[in-house]
Design a protein around this nucleic acid. Sequence first.
DNA 1: GCATATACGACTTTTTTGATCGTATTTATA
DNA 2: TATAAATACGATCAAAAAAGTCGTATATGC
Lengths: 150, 150
Amino acid sequence: MRTDYALRALFTLVEAYGRGPIPIRELARRNDVPKRFLEHIMLDLKNLGWVDSLPGKAGGYFLARQPTEIMMGEVVRCFDGYLAPIACVSVTGYKRCTQESFCRFRRVFLDIRNHVTRVMDRASLATVFAGAPVRDSEVANVDCIDGGGI
Amino acid sequence: MRTDYALRALFTLVEAYGRGPIPIRELARRNDVPKRFLEHIMLDLKNLGWVDSLPGKAGGYFLARQPTEIMMGEVVRCFDGYLAPIACVSVTGYKRCTQESFCRFRRVFLDIRNHVTRVMDRASLATVFAGAPVRDSEVANVDCIDGGGI
DNA sequence: GCATATACGACTTTTTTGATCGTATTTATA
DNA sequence: TATAAATACGATCAAAAAAGTCGTATATGC
Ligand code: SF4
Ligand code: SF4
């Protein structure tokens, strides 16, 4: 949830970009996140340099960088440690495995990692915000070989 | 780990397909998995119909289906619940979210889900086993926009 | 009958996640 | 300058999930 909550808050700030700070109470309400929990997340985002804040009356949080300059990949990577589906194919969170030299299915995970990073590191908050919400049918419509579940 | 351990064991059985059962002691040793833990995993695999077993001397586990007929996607889905990176874009493990109607970044996750399922549901154990292990350089070589970490 | 397998529920430990609380500090404004 | 409203931040907690262990029952081949 942490990563998801962080993204929710960030996109709310993208929407309000240039229009002054938003108090955490408002961020929590709008995004359906426990307020006290969101405090920690916002603090992380601040320390990472993506948002800034003003205390006191009329204070709150606002983006510290342009929405075009924050990539989804960076955000996820900071909260989850890495984008890869498993640590043995990650760079930032690499963890050696004893089976590496002969493991066969590692290649499948590598393929997925490559796609995930390609997508996530090209997607700035601005780009993503410009897109339309997902329609239900898009989730249900599965184009994999057997039409099976996901 | 569970999913990874399951895959390790399965691929060992693929390698030995048609050459009699392999005792769990051997599976645990070869794949660096705690033996007692692997017992539970093998039992799951058996109940799911992918492997079968023989007790007693000269007993052990063996594939119950042809390696061409078990897909990686099925395996992962059974152990992890779903392939999607987040439940709101999953079919088998779908969980409603209050933000769905206006969430923007959900589309990014949907894109990833589509790729993951496409790859995983087309990859049979046989196909994957036929491939070569991953070289270190392939993991290090990142082709995302900024050449940054993964 | 004995050695060697799997079968399987109960249990324990560890890690992760999600969340709460108390209190200090800063700021605008009346 | 008092006060109300905001962030700052460490301490702590609880629940859940994941990882791993144990004891013992049962089946099989020789
Ligand atoms: S078994 Fe293969 S995929 Fe799993 S961690 Fe080891 S190298 Fe990576
Ligand atoms: S906030 Fe968006 S991505 Fe996250 S769970 Fe809700 S709909 Fe899905």
